[in-house]
Nucleic acid binder design. Structure first.
Lengths: 238, 238
DNA sequence: TGGGATTTGTTCGTATGTATT
DNA sequence: GAATACATACGAACAAATCCC
């Protein structure tokens, strides 16, 4: 009954949550191998539970599982990144509509308190905390729709896009997020669904741009690189 | 190398797919117990693979897994049903926008051919086939967006709503679906994104209404039933 | 290129917890 | 209400495939 044994039963969940956090914070870099044995040893559970955790992470797009190769931290391509942001926009537009329709002073209070946390974390230079709070703002909104399934989908797609930002993004991609979050609250307060929808849409596009715009292009194919040094592949002599 | 052994390696996938089909066609009624041992014996695999299949089905909302009780075919509540349809509408509106933007004669041809299949199945009274084709129409549309992740999300939410229709719906809930599908094609042909979005939205609302409108209300709680016979729970005597 | 060590895929056995008589 | 039977949770072991030197 000791408190240190509290998680004796759900270590599998713990492994899942810990890995998810580590991947989303870019502590585990994309491509990193995740051998089941090592993970099991670290978390003190058998491979069975680790396999379940990895399977779930794979279904959420955070790890890649080859056929009989080690699982690795996912490396979302540019195309997958754009797909994920497109889905996220569609889901969060719906969130904005629903929250605008059920707006109340209590919700406003909760959201403003959260933004205040974001601000202080940002001003204190707590980068990782700031990123996490930025994501939690969107979870909070999704919860306010009262639609548990929608919340779940938003939670999942946020994991994907957060990894993408970690992979493709730069140091401080959430620079203007605070102002955009405040702008959204004003629109929600007016109960203007279309406006709220539009603000969310633009906000997420801005997040995507900050993450992808200046990102280095895909590592060029070997042939492309060589072409720059030997402009025309010399036709067979003659 | 015999053909009968073709699936020697991925029987787990097979179990997943077979169970999914059976649940969506209402061959396995909601609440039916799914003991791992029996399933393993039937599919010729060990419980480990069955567990993985059940876990995936659970994540898709098609089965409920208690803590240490048998998994059962899910019984979506009225509330969960409404949540699922709300998410589905949001995703399919996005599908409509994207397809309208990339419309081409080739797509039209594919969709009309599919609808023709739907029509002949419907006229031949092939109820189950008709329902399946109706769902596949939406998958086809999602594929046409070129967004693989969006397709996946639509695939998943279609599983949920199809089960819901099987649970709450009546005999022929897709009666008018054909006409609505044709109407959508006309809108897509015009390249009118807003119109296509609206048609999809109304179409899914219609599907939901056909499934839920006349459905019997939730079995009333015992207390509610008794209340009708003993209006006020008599306060302790005196 | 080849061989050994490592890692995964799968199965089976034991303990734990629930439902039923 | 207690005891029995059953189904699941979890872990250990074995064979096949992969990776690395």
């Amino acid at each position: 009954m000791s408190d240190s044994e509290t998680s004796q039963e759900n270590r599998g969940q713990l492994a899942y949550a810990a890995l998810r956090e580590a991947i989303m914070e870019n502590a585990l870099k994309p491509g990193t191998k995740l051998p089941e044995g090592d993970l099991g040893a670290h978390f003190g559970v058998s491979r069975t539970l680790i396999r379940a955790a990895l399977a779930r992470l794979a279904s959420e797009g955070l790890v890649d599982v080859g056929k009989t190769k080690s699982a690795t931290v996912a490396q979302p391509s540019r195309e997958e990144a754009e797909e994920a942001f497109a889905v996220r926009r569609a889901l969060e537009r719906e969130v904005a509509r629903l929250v605008a329709a059920r707006w109340s002073p209590a919700l406003e209070k909760t959201l403003r308190a959260h933004i205040e946390q974001e601000r202080s974390a940002s001003e204190a230079g707590q980068h990782k905390l700031s990123v996490r709070l930025g994501a939690e703002f969107h979870i909070l909104l999704a919860e306010m729709t009262g639609n548990a399934l929608l919340r779940r989908y938003v939670f999942e797609i946020l994991g994907r896009t957060t990894l993408i930002i970690a992979v493709h993004g730069q140091a401080h991609p959430q620079a203007d997020s605070l102002a955009e979050h405040l702008e959204l609250i004003e629109a929600l307060k007016k109960g203007d669904r279309a406006l709220a929808e539009g603000i969310v849409d633009r906000h997420i596009i801005a997040v995507e741009d900050r993450a992808l715009s200046r990102a280095e292009e895909e590592p060029a194919a070997l042939a492309d690189i060589l072409t720059r040094f030997a402009p025309a592949p010399a036709p067979a002599s003659r």
